[in-house]
Write a protein that binds this DNA or RNA. Structure first.
Lengths: 315, 315
DNA sequence: CTGAAAGCGCTTACAG
DNA sequence: CTGAAAGCGCTTACAG
């Protein structure tokens, strides 16, 4: 339409030098009229484009994942990478399959059995968040060990003796978080009390609101809750408030994750807070490494991050 | 390495029929050893791949954006699209530039002057969220008009008379939200009271915590706050609590956005709640339309969404 | 300042 | 069951 060759179009569209301004304008006009947009595939084939990381989160409306996503975005931008975020709440398999078309590496929590994992992911470099040691894939583990110890010690120091974990999971198995609580409680000679919720679809406020009274019925003398996450903790506090049970005097509440929620609820929530910035840094560096280097055989690399106990007013 | 042609590699990698199992295995083994991964660009050039939408948000850790992002993800997946989320908090220009390499259309809040907008976005179809009417681009407007009326009426009905808007903006101009509040107040014959914050970087809890006392100093007889968003409202409630001022008896507080935060704070927050699911639906349909149809000249299309007043316990 | 040629890495017919 | 040819839509030298 502009009566020029494709190279000249390239020059006009990409703002390159060595083109007559009038020619350039003619090309740009024609492009507008034809609604012409360069194909990202054609261009990428030649220029390689910026590498992209796929981030698989569980639920963006959960502060933990929102904060991780936000941190990943920052860290990626700094390194010239692009991030593609997907929520793998519904159909994990097809979500992942779709994602792979667009990215050079994947990071996130992928809740799939090992065999399916290999099948879905193929040769794409993957870094798994918080997966059991059984996978032959590199990963970042959320290690609650020492932080759970700190939380239990803190509750003991404030005079609490009957600590109940309000757990949550998709199935009947105890969560990783709860099992670490059990270990910490036993190390202190406490009876490990765990109430397990496998009914609710999401570990939200409602879980805590319903689990707290159930726990009190089962262990009337309980004096502290450690909760699966901050949402469950907020639900527990909301229930206790409704019963005019004083937090923390009568019952202390400790959350996990360190989301912004904890600063909104009254009293402000004691919680195990992750440095997600740090997680994002590790993940980006590992992803770049995996994409650039040939695959190292042998032990898959494992990182570990530990939350720290942030004491506020709910304990 | 496997001593086969590229077509056979294609067959092996893509799980196609018409290939000898032994050959396939040989190819797969070689692929693994060479860490071979098909180029997404080469493949996309032929298959076209799934179309991608770029979503530009302000801050993923803000519940409004997290919920919008989550809804967009859902709606996009249903339509076979992929979503690429970016946060345009720091360097908007380069963030957008980077994004364009990867997507077929863009949706979101892009805080750039009109000329720069055209320059940055080029021919990419764009749908703007909550931009002034001045742009010659299609968009979705957040229209507070009738909802502000409802909020003011509700406060009047509960006996409040001196309503103060706690506003926030990046610069000295009144926000769109505040100007709609002013209009609603004037329609009811009220003096429109607005306190403007242009100091804080983000419209977070701290803004409310600091603005609330400032407002009380300036208008000692105030009896209600309407806040720029839920975060500011939570900050105001936190301050009032600290002063043992009863909410809502002494001072009512109304937020905007309808984020999950409002259910966590005590008392639970009355707020103007958007149906972000609806916004996501409109945006996805419009994006698909823009990519598939040639560009229509004439008036750019405009949609409008109105929040609804959700009365809880802070008013 | 403009254009002809080569090639990026795949897949889709088609031939054998 | 396997391979030779063509082509997807760009950009990068290079020639004029």
């Amino acid at each position: 339409m502009a009566k020029v060759s494709r190279q000249t179009v390239t020059r006009a569209m990409n703002d390159m030098s060595g083109i007559n301004p009038a020619t350039k304008q003619r090309v740009l006009d024609a492009a507008r009229e034809l609604a012409y947009r360069p194909s990202r595939f054609g261009r990428g084939l030649v220029t390689q484009g910026a590498p992209a990381l796929g981030l698989v989160v569980v639920d963006l409306t959960n502060g933990f994942w929102a904060e991780l996503a936000s941190s990943m975005l920052d860290e990626a931008t700094e390194r010239g990478w692009t991030v593609l975020i997907v929520e793998a709440s519904h159909d994990v398999r097809s979500t992942i399959g779709n994602l792979l078309e667009h990215v050079d590496a994947v990071f996130g929590l992928i809740d799939l059995p090992d065999e399916e994992l290999d099948e879905s992911l193929g040769a794409t470099p993957v870094l798994l968040l918080d997966r059991p040691e059984t996978t032959a894939r590199p990963g970042i583990r959320l290690d609650f060990g020492s932080a759970m110890d700190a939380a239990v010690s803190h509750l003991l120091a404030t005079g609490k003796r009957r600590i109940v974990m309000l757990d949550w999971a998709r199935d009947d198995a105890m969560s990783h978080r709860a099992s670490q609580f059990v270990a910490a409680a036993q190390r202190r000679g406490l009876e490990p009390l765990v109430l397990h919720d496998a009914i609710s679809r999401e570990p939200g406020i409602e879980v805590g609101r319903q689990a707290a009274p159930a726990a009190r019925e089962r262990w009337p003398d309980l004096d502290a809750f450690v909760c699966f996450n901050d949402y469950v903790a907020v639900g527990a506090i909301k229930y206790l408030q409704s019963q005019e049970i004083d937090v923390p005097r009568d019952i202390s509440v400790v959350g996990i994750d360190g989301t912004a929620l904890g600063l909104v609820v009254t009293p402000e929530l004691t919680t195990l807070r992750f440095d997600l910035r740090e997680v994002a840094r590790i993940a980006m560096d590992a992803a770049i490494e995996m994409v650039e280097r040939p695959p190292v055989s042998g032990e898959p690399q494992q990182w570990s991050v530990t939350p720290s106990l942030t004491v506020r007013h709910s304990s």
